[in-house]
């Protein structure tokens, strides 16, 4: 018997079979959440002005070295010129921001998939090549933001899944720094399938498999059919910490004389990391206002092509298709 106290009353739950289990509802931990360094990129001119004035005032307090008067005066002149240049830059950046927003908006109108796989396939068929493996860096936005929180993330991922299936991509990696989505994979799977029905109809839904390499979990929808798209959910833990763990294992094997140190080669480590994390993606789309890799697994970005759209925070089809177009233009010549 469990007692739960609600509003001054003590509720006892009796059930004939067995004791009820008290389950804590999952809490989203916001502490330690990585904030992408883009919040300073869209500050308005007045905030920047205020900050620069502050900066200047602070520099007066700090400076008390053994300098001559001329050096001191020169420093102030130079520093104020620098801050003035920064201020002009902030005006310019604001105009640029507006310009880019307009461009992005018009692109979103130009490229609109209209929940139709045919349109997406038509767009893709104009290109001479597409990536086999696509990777996307997504941000966990604040719950209060537009399209934020877990629901926003799930929505963005399910759209990306639908576009990728329609485009014919074989593998999609989703990277989110905190790995928050890992605990919601059931919900994610349900929503992905729901969204796919919007694109493909209710009769034949593409067969999606969701993998969480770090946990070693694979969620299969229909084991009898071939898989149309594998979705890998990655987080920061799949990057450097995994390589550190691998180092521990390798050294353990070396100590136990099961592995010679000379046998540790790039190929061996590569095989292990493919097993632990997955393959190197061909294209990495960063849905961030600037290029910030957010501790993305370093081993896996060797020759990966990057794509990002300045001042864009949203996961939109326009960015997706433009990334593919950019990829089709790129030329890889290793070492040559």
């Amino acid at each position: 018997m469990t007692t739960v106290k609600v509003n001054g009353h003590t509720w006892s739950t009796h059930s004939g079979k067995s004791k009820d289990k008290v389950v804590e509802a999952p809490v989203i931990h916001n502490e330690g959440k990585l904030e992408p360094p883009n919040k300073y990129r869209s500050l308005n001119v007045f905030t920047v002005f205020y900050m620069l004035i502050n900066n200047f005032l602070r520099s007066i307090k700090i400076l008390d070295k053994n300098q001559t008067i001329t050096e001191l005066i020169l420093y102030y002149i130079n520093h104020s010129i620098l801050l003035m240049v920064f201020f002009i830059m902030s005006i310019y950046k604001n105009f640029l921001w507006i310009y880019r927003k307009i461009v992005l908006k018009s692109l979103n109108v130009t490229y609109y998939p209209n929940k139709s796989p045919h349109i997406i396939r038509d767009d893709v068929n104009k290109l001479n090549k597409i990536p086999k493996r696509l990777s996307c860096i997504l941000n966990f936005k604040d719950e209060d933001d537009e399209n934020g929180g877990i629901d926003g993330l799930i929505f963005d991922i399910s759209e990306l899944v639908a576009w990728s299936v329609s485009a014919g991509i074989a593998e999609l990696n989703i990277y989110e720094y905190n790995g928050i989505i890992n605990t919601y994979n059931g919900e994610l799977n349900r929503y992905i399938n729901k969204n796919l029905k919007n694109y493909f109809g209710t009769e034949y839904i593409p067969n999606i498999t969701i993998k969480i390499p770090h946990v070693g979990q694979i969620m299969v929808n229909d084991a009898s059919k071939p898989v149309d798209l594998t979705v890998n959910l990655l987080s920061a833990i799949d990057g450097k910490p995994t390589i550190v763990e691998l180092t521990k294992t390798m050294s353990e094997l070396a100590v136990n004389k099961e592995l010679k140190i000379e046998d540790i080669t790039i190929d061996l480590i590569n095989e292990e990391l493919i097993e632990l994390v997955g393959n190197e993606p061909d294209l990495l789309i960063i849905f961030n206002p600037n290029l910030d890799l957010q501790d993305y697994p370093p081993w896996h970005i060797r020759l990966t092509e990057f794509y990002w759209e300045y001042d864009n925070k949203d996961v939109t089809y326009a960015v997706f298709i433009r990334a593919l177009q950019n990829y089709a233009k790129s030329k890889v010549n290793v070492g040559k």
């Binding site: 550190v244 180092t247 050294s251 070396a254 100590v255 140190i261 540790i264 790039i266 480590i269 590569n270």
Partner: peptide, 27 residues
């Protein structure tokens, strides 16, 4: 990649020579 493998080798080497133990292998 060669750099990372070099580091893994170095670390394993140091462990084999007993300079460090498993727990001191950190990021």
């Amino acid at each position: 990649r060669d750099d990372i493998v070099h580091s893994i080798k170095q670390t394993s080497h140091q462990r084999m020579n007993g300079l460090i133990n498993k727990d001191s292998i950190t990021l």
